[in-house]
Design a binder for these strands. Sequence first.
DNA 1: GCGACTGATGTCAGTCAGTGTCATCAACGT
DNA 2: ACGTTGATGACACTGACTGACATCAGTCGC
Lengths: 188, 188
Amino acid sequence: MGRWEPDAGGRLARAALELYAERGYEQTTVAEIAQRAGVTERTFFRHYADKREVLFGASDEMYEVLASAVGAAPPAATPLRALTAGLVALAGIFAEQHEHARQRQAVIAANASLRERELTKLAAMATALADALRRRGVADPAATLAAEAGIATFKVGFELWLAGPEEADVTQVVREALDELGGVFARG
Amino acid sequence: MGRWEPDAGGRLARAALELYAERGYEQTTVAEIAQRAGVTERTFFRHYADKREVLFGASDEMYEVLASAVGAAPPAATPLRALTAGLVALAGIFAEQHEHARQRQAVIAANASLRERELTKLAAMATALADALRRRGVADPAATLAAEAGIATFKVGFELWLAGPEEADVTQVVREALDELGGVFARG
DNA sequence: GCGACTGATGTCAGTCAGTGTCATCAACGT
DNA sequence: ACGTTGATGACACTGACTGACATCAGTCGC
């Protein structure tokens, strides 16, 4: 057994989400989060670069899921199909987590600087997606454009899913959003 | 004559860009910006909400140009054409400002929190664009999707323009980026 | 003219996010 | 035993940002 309770990072993340939801992001101090997690303020900053980052710990996993799904698409698949496979896999992470995702998103939506950080994470995902497409041989600027548009579409689809019933299939909602965007460009 | 030198906001904006370019965003304190502009630190925060915002003062004008150009497109124009008109008008703001835009973009690119703020501004532009499309009768989610994809495309086009020669036509580069994205979806 | 009012600024004290540095001490390997 | 490692605590410090109140040129009504 260690000298301290294990999983300080996890405890901090849970404490932060709770407090942000209870009293709001700005009304919560890092000292309070640390106290609820049973560590000092200094330890908070050893686990998370700043007060916002504590809500986005799972991002790295998401980049990997996205990139590997794009890479795993059949070699003959078109860029659009590979992109779709990636976004569907990404959406899969959230399946069965409708309620948790909704609470987290509500916290983020309630604060400008958290929304700002979320945009940064989405932009990083677009970069990861563009890289994965280039690895498949898609040239620029098509790769970058497709990635940016794809992530934007994911965002829209994800929000639709959150706003809808719990039974809805995230992956299906994302597929439909991509089809819809295809329609805008196909019909001119 | 007033009690103080006029245009404190403009002086602060110029001082900030200079200092951020000279020594970097993080190495510049608000007190230094205020001093160069001949005001106190408190006055800086009366003109700009935070240390980042001082670089983005022109954003409101951009939302208006974008929205009114979309609204001014012929009633019979397709959503894609109206969207294109809006983005081309937006790009027009930067014409003849290649060098200034490049310096500003270099400052932003050099710092994570400035990039973060820029993403927020782009997201606000996507919202303004989606609103303008809806006012033309474009339904959701197509309006939101087209707006998100359109702004993402603008971003890509704008960066291509900045990276290219000064003589290049911003509006033309943006048109080409939109065509390219159309190709991705048309060819599937 | 003159007093009330306005608006931009200065002054000052305070909170809190984030960082650098050194000390502590269980666990682990040798 | 003994040195090393790694996560944490303790503590001082900088700088972004806020709230409250004071100041005073210009303006307006009379």
